[in-house]
Amino acid sequence: QTVHVKGVQYHFPNPEEAVKFALKVAKDLGGRVEFHGDEIHVE
């Protein structure tokens, strides 16, 4: 599972961890989380 944050990719073997990370980052940055297939983008 890959999380993209402002052009940087973070790889997580566990999808659940990836989602938790993405939600935390989005909250910290005041952004939103978008799901694109296997990828999660924080915009």
Rank of each mutant, 00 (worst) to 15 (best):
R32E: 05
F12P: 00
R32N: 06
F21Q: 02
G7S: 05
Q9V: 15
F12K: 01
E43K: 14
F35W: 12
L23A: 08
P15N: 12
P13I: 12
F12Q: 00
A26L: 04
E43S: 12
G7A: 04
H11N: 09
V5I: 12
H11R: 09
K24M: 12
H36T: 07
Q1Y: 15
E16H: 09
G31M: 14
G30L: 06
H4D: 04
E39R: 08
K27P: 01
F35C: 10
I40Q: 01
A22M: 03
F21A: 02
G30S: 06
F12I: 02
K6W: 13
E16G: 08
H36S: 07
V3H: 01
A18P: 00
P15S: 13
G7F: 04
Q1S: 14
E16R: 09
V25F: 06
L29M: 12
Y10F: 10
P15H: 15
T2G: 03
H11T: 10
F21Y: 08
K24W: 09
A26W: 03
N14A: 05
Q1F: 15
H41I: 10
H36D: 07
E43R: 14
H4W: 15
Y10Q: 02
A18S: 03
H41P: 00
V42S: 01
V5H: 05
F12T: 00
V8N: 08
V8A: 08
K24S: 11
E16S: 09
H11M: 09
V33C: 08
V5P: 00
E43T: 15
A18Y: 01
E16W: 12
K6H: 13
V19L: 15
V19A: 07
H41W: 14
A18V: 00
E43H: 14
N14K: 05
P15T: 13
K24T: 09
P15K: 15
E16P: 04
Y10N: 02
V33A: 04
L23C: 12
V19Y: 15
K27R: 11
T2I: 12
V42Q: 01
H11L: 08
Y10W: 06
F21K: 01
G30A: 07
E16D: 10
Q1N: 13
T2W: 10
Q1T: 15
G7N: 06
V33N: 00
K27L: 11
V8Q: 10
F12S: 00
F12C: 06
H11D: 06
D28F: 12
G7L: 04
V42T: 02
F35Q: 05
V25R: 06
F35Y: 12
D38I: 09
K24F: 07
T2E: 03
H41C: 08
K6A: 13
N14M: 04
V19D: 03
H41Q: 04
G31D: 03
F21C: 05
H41L: 08
A26H: 02
F12D: 00
E17M: 10
F12N: 00
P13A: 14
V42D: 01
E34N: 10
V5M: 06
A22C: 04
G30C: 11
V42M: 02
K6C: 15
H4N: 10
E34S: 13
H4E: 05
A26P: 00
H4P: 01
V3F: 02
K20C: 14
V5G: 00
Y10D: 00
N14S: 14
A22R: 00
N14T: 14
H41M: 08
P13R: 12
Q1D: 05
F35I: 10
V19N: 06
G31W: 14
H41S: 06
H36E: 06
L23Q: 11
Y10R: 03
P13E: 13
V33D: 01
A26N: 02
P13Q: 13
A22V: 02
E39N: 09
A22N: 00
V33I: 13
H41A: 04
F12V: 01
G30I: 04
T2A: 06
F35T: 05
K6N: 15
E39M: 09
R32Q: 07
A26K: 02
E39P: 02
H11F: 13
V33G: 01
D38R: 11
H4T: 13
V33L: 11
G31Q: 04
G31V: 06
H36F: 11
Q9P: 10
L23I: 13
E17Q: 09
Y10A: 00
V19G: 03
A18N: 00
F21N: 01
T2Y: 08
D38S: 12
F21H: 03
H4F: 15
F21I: 02
D38F: 10
T2L: 07
E16V: 10
E43F: 15
Q9N: 07
G30W: 06
